[in-house]
């Protein structure tokens, strides 16, 4: 069952088309990673999901309700953390957290205190004095101390230190274990890799790929490092071979994952001494979509 469903979403700002038919869904109980470079339309999509922007075309449903007309009803069960948290300079962090929790309805005092301690925030300081990371903590504490069914997190960790990032990841996993759904937009691909069940990649206002990481990996290349008894003949003539490089450890190259079988068969004829393979990272996956057809140099085997 899907908690969030986006169909053919189109959003124009004047003549500029920001979103050009976006399609994806977030299923109940899953963490969905939403990745794409700056200006691809991530934040615009999220603002449409929140009913802050009105879609020109398409259908956006959250909990089966329309994101624009039923915004208030939806928001009672939804928590949002923006990437750029702008707070009121003359209110304290504690006041803002209370305000946010109260505005959603529902109250979870013990969770609030626990999270304040976990995130190591001083709630008696005015927001004016907070750094970017601390402002993000305010938003995160407000979000996770409310009992939401769907969390929409827009680059929530861009200002956090590694320790706090870990606390954040625990919060997301905890929410997931409780059966909550999460839409996580992020630049930190290792984080997405660690947390997300499924990933959607957006480019120029269109979702160009969705699926589990495993599914997506098939669409990209595997790193291979191989040492053979005899030199491998006519390797570069095979389909799906990229970035061939002689290194001290052996021959390094990348293989389109769907051609892997044929390539390995071919290589094995030359007597394999050593074979190392590494799955593509999300970064490779990401890059493969944004590079100009793989012309760019990618590092060797990791």
């Amino acid at each position: 069952m899907s908690v969030l469903e986006v169909r053919n979403l189109e959003k124009k700002f004047g003549k500029f088309t920001a979103l050009d038919g976006v399609n994806f869904e977030v299923r109940s109980g899953e963490v969905f990673g939403f990745i794409g470079p700056n200006g691809a339309g991530k934040s615009t999509t999220i603002r449409v999901l929140l009913g802050i922007l009105k879609a020109n075309e398409g259908e956006v449903k959250i909990f089966g309700k329309d994101a624009w007309s039923d915004a208030v009803e939806i928001h009672k069960r939804l928590a949002y953390v923006p990437g750029d948290v702008n707070l009121w300079p003359n209110l304290t962090g504690g006041e803002v957290i209370d305000l946010f929790v109260k505005l959603r309805g529902g109250n979870n005092k013990s969770k609030r205190e626990e999270l304040i301690k976990k995130f190591d925030l001083d709630p008696t300081k005015k927001c004016r004095t907070y750094s970017k990371g601390n402002r993000q903590k305010v938003a995160l504490i407000a979000a996770f101390s409310s009992d939401a069914d769907l969390y929409i997190l827009d680059e929530p960790t861009s200002g956090l230190d590694p320790l706090m990032e870990k606390v954040f990841q625990e919060c997301v996993l905890e929410a997931k274990n409780e059966g909550k759904s999460v839409l996580l937009s992020s630049h930190i691909l290792s984080e997405v890799e660690k947390l997300c069940d499924r990933v959607g990649i957006i480019r120029q206002g269109q979702i160009i790929e969705t699926g589990t990481l495993n599914e997506l990996r098939h669409l990209t290349r595997t790193h291979i490092l191989v040492e053979t008894k005899q030199p491998i003949a006519s390797l570069t003539e095979l389909k799906g071979i990229h970035e061939v490089e002689e290194t001290e450890q052996g021959l390094s190259f990348q293989v389109d994952t769907k051609e892997l079988d044929i390539i390995i068969r071919h290589i094995s004829q030359f007597g394999i001494v050593k074979l190392e393979s590494a799955p593509p990272t999300l970064e490779d996956l990401f890059m493969s979509h944004y590079e100009n057809k793989g012309e760019r140099e990618v590092g060797g085997v990791r």
Binding site: R47, D84, L103, R104
Partner: peptide
Amino acid sequence: KKGRLDHLLGRAVSR
């Protein structure tokens, strides 16, 4: 303009 209405409209506050 300062982006702070999002905090309210992103919660159960109607326009």
